[in-house]
Design a protein around this nucleic acid. Structure first.
Lengths: 127, 127
DNA sequence: CTGCGACTTGAAGCGCGGTTCAAGTCAAGG
DNA sequence: CCTTGACTTGAACCGCGCTTCAAGTCGCAG
């Protein structure tokens, strides 16, 4: 039922040191101790999955901490989330351009590669 | 014609210290000196724009250095670029899910906000 | 010619997101 | 009971991408 830190580390793909680090930051918490050892509820794993997801979306650990503790009444946070969504729109557009340019660059023949005009186009879109 | 570091900094939006840092890393170079001061060709600005773009696509400065000096004969690099394009595909998909979840979370009423099942869906897609 | 201020250098410092280390604790198995 | 080895702690360290600092050098306006 309860997991120890080694199991959580293995199942989440994070290092035990990272889990302790997250705990200090308030992102997760051990629900008890077996002697001196932390014990975790299985739900911790989905919480960690959410954290990993948010991180890869560009949230800092501090921001994620706020997200995790947020109440629906927190209008300031809602605003930040909406703003973040807008930023993601821009970011997605830019990554898409970059991806297309990369795919082209991987098979064009300019020397040096960055001399390729198609590759350079990506920069224009980003201004 | 030639720009000094202050002008390049202002026009590129980077700090002068960052430009010197990039030079040490081999990403840019001053084409000459006016006394002790660096002088830059105007093309440096587009090079910097390219660097900014690549950075925002997730390349490290070291990777960008390799990109900037790459010859079309560098097949290993082409392979890395193709691989990177694949990574960007995944990244774009995930950011898109995250954006949608954020937009939803910004207007849903679960308490705490992360309890929202729709919000949690984003994690599933990322597994 | 003199002074100001923008440049130069190398080295140290910073914020982030952790990892690594040393020293110690303890639960479980033989 | 004793060993083993996974855990505990705090503190120091790391790589990245810069910034800041101290001390010094110059070009140019007055």
């Amino acid at each position: 039922m309860l997991l120890d830190i080694g199991e959580v580390a293995q199942r989440s793909g994070l290092a035990a040191s990272a889990l302790r680090f997250y705990e200090r930051k308030g992102l997760i918490s051990a629900t008890g101790r077996n002697g001196i050892r932390r014990t975790y509820e299985p739900e911790t794993l989905s919480r960690l999955a959410l954290i990993a997801c948010a991180r890869s979306a560009g949230f800092t650990l501090t921001e994620i901490g706020r997200l995790l503790h947020a109440k629906p009444s927190d209008d300031a946070l809602r605003e930040r989330m909406a703003e973040k969504a807008g930023e993601l729109d821009d970011r997605i557009a830019q990554l898409t351009r970059m991806r297309d340019s990369l795919r082209h660059a991987a098979s064009c023949t300019h020397d040096p590669l960055i001399a390729c005009p198609e590759f350079k186009q990506v920069v224009q879109g980003a201004e």
